[in-house]
Structures are given as C-alpha cells and as structure tokens.
Design a protein around this nucleic acid. Structure first.
Length: 262
DNA sequence: CCGCTGACCGACA
DNA sequence: GTGTCGGCCAGCG
C-alpha cells in the first residue's frame, strides 16, 4: 500500500467512477436477460446425458455431456452462436418428454441462426417418424432442392439439435445407414432402439429392393413406412426403383411420399 | 475471392 | 461388381 500522489489520484477517480456507475444501476427491463442470454440445462437422453442450450425462442443447441463436459459445451456453443450462456432454472417445456422418446411436438426450436436451406433440411428431417427412415435424397426433395443431396449430408453433419431433429433417421439410398455426427454405431443403436428393423431393410437393399408395394391397396412405400410394414407377405412386391413400381400400376404412398407422390 | 472439403446419389465407364 | 465425376450448399483457410 503506497500513499504517493498518483495512487491517491487514481483511487479518487475510481471512487467517483464507482459512485457514478452505482447511480446508473437499475433493474434490467423485463425480457432483456432472455434477449441477451441463452440458458443451459443437463438432461438424460438416448445419447446419455446431454447439455442443451435454449433462447427465449426455443432449444438452439444440444450435445452429449460426455467428453468435454460443461466447459466444452459452452465453448462449442459460444464459437457457433456468440451468445453468453447461463444456467437455466428448469428445462424448456417439452424437452424431457421429447428426449424420452415420447411422441408429440417436442420443445420449440430456435433455428433462426441458420440459413434458409439449413432450416428447410432440418424441417423435413423433423417430419420423419420414430422407427422409420428416409434417404438423403428424400430430404433434399422435401427441402425444395432435389439436387442438393450431398449438401443435405453437410447440413446434418452439423445438426445443432440432434435427437430433437432426428437426423439419425436419414440413411443412404443404397441401404447403408450412412454417417452420424456421433459415429455410425450410435446411429444404428438409436434406430434399433426406436424399433426400426435395420437387418430387414439391409436384406432388402442387398437384393436391390428399395420400395415395397401392396397389391391390395396398389400403394408403393419406403420399406420402413408404417404402411409398408403391414403388407401381408402374399401381397407384397419389391421394386428397385419407384419408376418400375409406378409402371406396374402402384401409386406413391401419401404417408411416406417416395418421389412423385402428390 | 477462390479453392477445397464434406453423414450423398445417380449415371456412366 | 468397382471407380470416377458432377451437382449442391456452406464453412474454412
């Protein structure tokens, strides 16, 4: 502790500055904190415990708690969304049931930081029901960019909200499951846990069958469509392309919308 | 700004 | 059956 003049002057200035700032202090306007901060929670899921970040608009980012812990999660979040993160008092409405695999709308999502194409891809992916799967090409077409098949893979590879946007249900057209941001084995585990017949679909694909049709309803579906699974074996027909099926008199299913459905 | 790189797909050699 | 290539969109150096 010195008592020379410069130090005294500085202390004086500091004191006046602090007093001035104290005079400025006031309650933050309602809603301001939520406009500035995102909030994080840690919750259980099919991927183990995950961290999720939500803004006032909805869940924006979700990652497994695994490796880097909370510090890694906040770093990844800030690198991508440049917004401070504070603890949330409770999980956003609908998050826990959605992660528990309950059917329903799930929590609101905040996809505002994404491009239009990215949002379109995630929206289409969101419409794939549990226990089912669709090819990357299907997502591209549903997203309004039928040629952007590869770009769909790029978008899903950095899906900010896995599980909530079920990108694990997007698979390759040749019957392989394709990649996953947390590893292909994890993708397969999730699909099996949801009740998808992974082996059955692989068998069909190996024999060149990518579509299943029913001669009682004259409808042709993706093999994982809930309508396709109920076709009695006697009335079931397999096709390699939708074109063949259509030429044979079958119309595209309105539930799973293989290319060409109205 | 350019050039490259992806969780892909279908066409063609 | 395998290999290569172009198309697509966004992030990175």
């Amino acid at each position: 502790m010195t008592t020379d003049d410069t130090t005294t002057d500085t202390t004086d200035v500091d004191a006046r500055l602090l007093a001035g700032l104290a005079g400025l202090a006031t309650e933050a306007p309602a809603g301001l904190p939520d406009a500035v901060f995102a909030r994080w929670v840690r919750v259980p899921s099919g991927l183990g415990d995950v961290y999720a970040a939500a803004t006032a608009h909805g869940v924006q980012f979700l990652r497994p708690a695994g490796d880097a812990g909370l510090a890694g999660f906040t770093a990844a979040y800030r690198a991508r969304f440049a917004r401070p993160l504070v603890a949330a008092p409770r999980p956003p409405a609908g998050l826990l049931p959605a992660l528990r695999g309950r059917p329903g709308r799930g929590p609101a999502l905040d996809l505002t930081a994404l491009t239009g194409f990215e949002r379109a891809v995630l929206d289409a992916t969101r419409r794939i029901p549990a226990g089912q799967a669709r090819p990357y090409g299907w997502v591209a077409r549903e997203a309004g960019s039928p040629g952007a098949v590869r770009a769909v893979g790029s978008v899903l590879a950095r899906n900010p909200v896995p599980l909530l946007v079920p990108c694990h249900r997007v698979v390759r057209a040749d019957g392989a499951l394709g990649g996953y941001l947390f590893g292909a084995p994890e993708k397969e585990r999730l699909l099996r846990a949801e009740g998808m017949d992974v082996d059955g679909v692989a068998d069909l694909a190996r024999r060149g069958v990518r579509y299943l049709a029913s001669d009682t309803t004259t409808v042709v579906c993706f093999p994982t469509c809930r309508d396709a699974r109920r076709i009695t074996p006697r009335h079931r027909h397999g096709f390699g392309t939708l074109d063949e099926a259509v030429r044979a008199g079958f119309r595209p299913c309105r539930t799973c919308r293989p290319a060409g459905a109205a």
